[in-house]
Structures are given as C-alpha cells and as structure tokens.
C-alpha cells in the first residue's frame, strides 16, 4: 500500500493517530479536558519506551539501509466499554502516549468518533498545518531569485 492511500476508515484512523503522535502532552491534555472526554482506561500494554531502527534508501530511492535508532513510546489501553486503543509516538513521553491510546480507543468507538474528530483531531491538524505553513514561508523567504545582469552590448 502506498502512503496515504489506505482504505477508509483506516486512512481516517491513521490520520487521527498521526495527529495525536505529533501533538504535545499539554495539547492533548487541554483538548481532552475541553472536550469533556473521560480518560478512564485500563492499561493493557505499557506505556513503554523502546527503539525503532530508522531506515533510509540508498540514493534516496534505492535499496533500504539502517540509518540509526530513535526512541519510541507505545501504549495499548482498554476503555471501560471494552474498546481497545493503541498509540505510538517518537520520544519518551509515557503520559502523552497513554492519552493518545485513550483517544484512539475513543475514536474507534462509533458513538464518540465525531467528538474526537471535531474537538481533538481537527484542532490538532489545524495547529500542525499552521506550524508547517509558517516553516514553509520562513524557508521560502530564503529562496534565491536569480536575475541576469544586462551587459549592454547592443
């Protein structure tokens, strides 16, 4: 499967999980509180921190090679309803990843999905898109505009 072409609703869940993974602990905490969502859940696995080996490709698009490791934290939780949720994120913030797993479980439950989408995923995606746009604009200001000197020979 190519990136971003997974079938619905996997694509939506993947996008939501990506938004949780890239958020900060404080952002998740504040949005959960504002949305009035419960964070009651039973830990099934973790939160635990480990490594993933980051892979690149020779020449950018050739055979894969191992570039180095990165810290990753993962968690699996179960809501009182029985719904299970997972989360993975770079770094070692266990509380953030626990909250992300709770949000994933809450997203997976049909009756709370819209709330999570509207109150958590949408604001996070907006913030992340704004940050990216700012970074893009800052980089774009350093783009070279070449011009040719007129040499006045004719």
């Amino acid at each position: 499967m190519r990136r971003g072409q997974e079938r619905e609703p996997n694509a939506a869940r993947k996008a939501a999980m990506a938004a949780f993974a890239q958020a900060s602990r404080d952002q998740l905490r504040e949005l959960i509180q504002a949305a009035g969502l419960s964070t009651e859940a039973k830990p099934l696995r973790g939160p635990e921190t480990g490594l993933v080996t980051v892979r690149g490709r020779i020449g950018g698009g050739g055979a894969s090679f191992n570039t180095g490791e990165a810290t990753v934290t993962r968690a699996t939780v179960q809501l009182p309803s029985g719904q299970v949720g997972h989360a993975y994120a770079l770094g070692r913030d266990k509380e953030k990843v626990r909250l992300a797993a709770i949000l994933d479980a809450t997203w997976c439950a049909e009756e709370t999905r819209a709330t999570v989408e509207d109150k958590i995923v949408a604001p996070l995606q907006r913030l992340q898109a704004e940050a990216d746009a700012r970074r893009r604009a800052e980089a774009a200001a350093t783009k070279v505009d070449f011009f040719t000197m007129v040499r006045g020979e004719d």
Binding site: G50, V52, R55, G56
Partner: peptide, 11 residues
C-alpha cells in the same frame, strides 16, 4: 531499550 522494529524507509 527493547527494539520495536524497523521503520518504513523515509521518503
């Protein structure tokens, strides 16, 4: 630390 796996190659 334990190892969780290998990422997909970065693009």
């Amino acid at each position: 630390l334990p190892r969780f796996g290998y990422t997909r190659p970065i693009d």
